[in-house]
Design a protein around this nucleic acid. Sequence first.
RNA 1: GGGGCUGUAGCUCAGCCGGAUAGAGCGACGGUUUCCUAAACCGUAGGUCGUGGGUUCGAGUCCCGCCAGCCCCGCCA
Length: 605
Amino acid sequence: MLSVLDALNGQLQAAMERAFPEATAEARQSGVPLDPQLAPASKPEFGDFQANGALPLAKPLGQPPRQIAQAIVVQLKADPSFAELCLDPVIAGPGFINLTLRPERLCAEVAARLGDPRLGVPRVAEAGTGAGRDGAPVVVDFSSPNIAKEMHVGHLRSTIIGDCLARVLEFRGHPVLRLNHVGDWGTQFGMLITHLKQVAPEALDTADAVDLGDLVAFYRQAKARFDADEAFQAASREEVVKLQGGDPVSLKAWRLLCDQSRREFQTIYGRLDIALSERGESFYNPHLQAVVNDLRAAGLLVVDDGAGCVFLEGVSGKDGKPLPLIVQKRDGGFNYATTDLAAIRYRFAPAPEGDGAGRVIYVTDAGQASHFAGVFQVARRAGWIPEGTSVNHVPFGLVQGDDGKKLKTRSGDTVRLRDLLDEAVERAEADLRRRLADEERTEGDAFIQQVATTVGLAAVKYADLSTNRITNYQFSFDRMLALSGNTAPYLLYAVVRIAGIARRGGDMAAASGDLQFSEPQEWALIRELLKLDAVIAEVEEELLPNRLCSYLFELSQVFNRFYDQVPVLKANEPARSSRLALCRLTADTLKLGLGLLGIPTLERM
RNA sequence: GGGGCUGUAGCUCAGCCGGAUAGAGCGACGGUUUCCUAAACCGUAGGUCGUGGGUUCGAGUCCCGCCAGCCCCGCCA
């Protein structure tokens, strides 16, 4: 109901201006125009919206706030366009103005959504206002596992949250570039290739000579040797130089390793239904020297202790001196800061030399906040972030186990993403089989597999998305798979209930003409349904998927109440058709919302 | 030492631009099924919003101090 909100805001503002012309003029002059402070009602009994703007005027006007509210209400009631929208306003408490929409207005909004595949959510304007880069792509940088390692629980949140944000932005009509900034370059490869040359040379020239699990073990050995053995360290560094210099043997080995990892990642992305374009660190390799050259030309580069640094403004270290961002190591090599700078520079650069992005979003853990703050600052000072564009770090907290510590397996290893997803599906299947036995239902294996897979993966995604991403998140299979509460199964069940009504003879396609409602449960459901557009706008603005989850949960609760207390199929016309229309709109809203979370729905479960 | 994040019911968490008596869910306790899937619904109990100040008509929310936990701080990403 964003359009209604917009209209009301205008009407309120006009009413305030008519009621208090002098205060309006004064406020204009001081640059802080009168604000009606229009917001959704904090409780259903207060109506649909509340305007709190009278309260702050009490002091400057020297009048009791309720009297001010009364004056505004008088002007409001004189406005015919307001009277068309709302019932008579009510002044409550210290001076709140409570607004309730006319029922016929709500019906009209419902009717409009029934015929709209976007359910009332507008697309961003195709033609821009001229400011910034309207219509330019939004880069969402997420997931980013490392080549030659398996995806583990540390990649879970970035992958799921990044995908959700990308889906929301795409739905709003932004062109989105989903970039997988995989770790496919750097010292780690020097180590691994050097080690493999000695212990498993076949892995370097034959595809799939060793499997990924072994590769991970080799990587671990290599890392251990690198930390302990200086000769190995030197050999590894040399290997990196060879690789970066394009040595054909090294390059071939590198390609084999990347291909193998890529296929492994793809099976995970496939299971989770996540689309990503791989563009690893190596992509920016040709631009690294130019980044350093540009920084030097801009006068930002300082060589300190042999390393190429940019000293950060407003960030000081232990000794009170500014903290450096190192962009070129003493040995001449580049590091991740250089790569990240090259990436920013490329993403904002106009096509065809770059992506021409209008906004770049990084979905990485909160521990990298200061790193990105530094990178963003340097990029800005170097002039690589154009006017009217924005760059955001979207941080998230750790995944913790029941003990409140970083999630680990019983033996203390990091949890492989593959195993985590398997376990979720297995547990969902066990739950389902138990339930089928209890209810004496019989279902085929295909059905059981489908439901278990959908429920298990949905549970993992939803549990992650439904908590505010900035805080650490306590992972618990038991909680996420619970059949009640704010969980994926609860939401999926609401959709299933509606599908059940359709199966039992509810014609969902019919009836959108003459809507008639009488029950409070119907009105509650309608009001909830009409919030969708505002919720999506909020998620797009704040990049907080948990706002969408809360909404879908509340919608499911309101629907379940309606379903429990108001008959649909057994109702007489016109209530029956009107209620069916609400069911259809609820199902469509839940499917759309869950779809934006990356969660598919079921007809039966 | 510097910086960041966090601290809300027994547990897991919401809390939007500062607004009415701080909300959910789980767990606990009590109820509901000739009826569209009870994976549901209804009800009860449960709070010094870490702490001390400040700002103001009004603070969980903004500012300052303090306490606790986690994370980052020179050539890993």
